[in-house]
Amino acid sequence: MQCSPSLVGALSSVLVVLGLLILWLYGRTPTRYGKHAEAAAEKPLPQERRRHLPAKCAWFLQELPAFLVPAVLLALRNPPHFAPLGCRLLGGMFCGHYFHRTFIYSFLTRGRPFPLHTVLFGMLFCVYNGFLQGYYMVYCAEYPDDWCNDIRFTSGILLFLFGMGINIHSDFLLRKLRKPGELNYKIPQGGLFVYVSGANFFGEILEWFGYAIATWCLPAFAFALFTVCFVGPRAYHHHRYYLRKFTGYPRSRKALIPFIF
């Protein structure tokens, strides 16, 4: 397979447009799953259950393509398979994140059932983005021999690891709020939740901007922008939900960015 810069540019542009469209569509109205699902407090009817998947299954199926597609592209690459720096960055950072989301997070989550259409859209996006990031890093990315000493590489790696740490720790704190089988929502406590309602989202944004800086490529920056457009409104609507539901919710907390927003 040969690198096609025009294909990379087109797919990256579509990703940016998709992110801006999602921001426009869901900036005021939240997506209808999780705490924002219609009639969430009521017991679903039998026909409604058939249109939902358990959270563990939904997260696994949704996130799997984002790990599997780049891994297949790496495996199909002509030798040497893992020698170029772009391949190592893709495997260690992008695939590392989605390995955790697919094979660890999905089996630990205690969330509500997911609508089937949401899972399908998530799977399609992960196939698309997994191909874009994998195709570029495996077949197009070229870095100078001293890239590992570049400030963009080192700062990007550190930001990625910092964001991933926040994301994983915040998910752990959210799981602690619920006992097994429990589905009601409670006020998140501890960690970065002291400052923002969407600490897990903030960590994910830092991750992908770290990845974009370390790789310094258009597809990664397009994905980082998409992440802001997708999880930013989610954090905002979570924040509003908590303020409405809990009279004792800390008013000093922001939605997504500590002390700012």
Score class of each variant (00 low, 15 high):
A58L: 11
R28G: 14
V16M: 13
A41Y: 00
P46V: 07
L53T: 05
K43L: 03
A66N: 14
L20K: 03
L61Y: 07
A37T: 02
V17S: 01
L15E: 12
H36Y: 12
L11N: 08
P70Y: 00
H52A: 15
W24Q: 14
Q62S: 08
L20E: 04
K43R: 06
A66V: 12
S12L: 03
S13G: 15
R77H: 14
K35Q: 14
E42K: 04
T29A: 05
A75N: 05
H52N: 12
L25K: 14
T29W: 09
L21T: 13
L76M: 11
F67K: 07
V69T: 02
Q47A: 15
T29L: 07
P44S: 04
L74P: 05
P46S: 10
F60Q: 05
E48D: 07
L18S: 10
A37Y: 03
F67A: 07
L18K: 04
L64M: 15
L64I: 12
E38S: 05
A39C: 08
K43Q: 05
R50W: 13
S13Y: 01
A58G: 15
A58K: 09
L23Y: 03
A37N: 02
G27R: 09
P54V: 00
E48L: 04
K43S: 04
L23H: 03
A75V: 09
A58E: 12
A71R: 00
L11R: 09
V69P: 01
P30K: 08
F67P: 07
K43F: 01
R49L: 10
Y26M: 01
G27Y: 06
Q47P: 06
L73A: 11
P65D: 14
L74R: 02
A71Q: 02
L23K: 05
K43P: 00
H52P: 03
A37H: 03
A66P: 11
L11D: 09
L68M: 14
C57T: 14
H52G: 09
E38D: 05
W24S: 15
Q62H: 09
C57H: 09
K43I: 01
P80G: 01
W59I: 06
H36C: 11
E38R: 06
V14A: 11
C57K: 12
Q62P: 04
E38Y: 01
L64H: 12
L61S: 07
K35D: 08
V17F: 03
R51L: 15
A75D: 05
P44T: 06
L11E: 08
A39L: 07
K43Y: 02
W59L: 10
P79S: 03
P46M: 07
P80E: 01
I22Q: 01
R28E: 08
L73R: 12
V17D: 01
E42N: 04
P80R: 00
L21C: 12
L68Q: 06
A39I: 00
